[in-house]
Design a protein around this nucleic acid. Structure first.
Length: 102
DNA sequence: CTCTTGACGCACA
DNA sequence: GTGTGCGCCAAGA
């Protein structure tokens, strides 16, 4: 557990319910605005989903990263819907309304 | 210690 | 508005 990963997790955990953010935003919060790659890499190795609500983390387009899924994209979509997040597309959240800025 | 990969983002054509 | 290329940082082999 490095300082970087801690900040990443902390930032993701701080994302309020019904709100989503982007990798870039998290990277900025961590102090490494160019580390969005590392953010994804670190979160990918995230052990427990209950500890890190990674389903609230989307790419700059606001769409779900179709390559990570912990239990299925539908599961993630359902989780976001449960939080009251609206979807612009089948797997693209309306970040316009739900984007979270630390 | 060095090289490659990775849940990405932005600039340019 | 769409397609391609380059750059960023960290972790794993």
């Amino acid at each position: 557990m490095t300082e970087f990963s801690e900040k990443v997790f902390d930032a993701v955990i701080k994302i309020p319910c019904g709100r989503v953010t982007t990798y870039g935003q998290i990277a900025i919060i961590c102090g490494h605005k160019g580390a969005f790659r590392a953010v994804g890499s670190t979160l990918h190795k995230n052990p427990v989903f209950g500890m890190i609500p990674c389903h609230r983390v989307v790419n700059s387009k606001g769409e779900l990263a179709e390559n990570y899924v912990f239990g299925g994209k539908e599961v993630q979509k359902n989780l976001l819907l449960e939080e009251g997040i609206e979807f612009s597309e089948e797997y693209v959240v309306n970040m316009r309304k739900h984007f979270w800025f630390g």
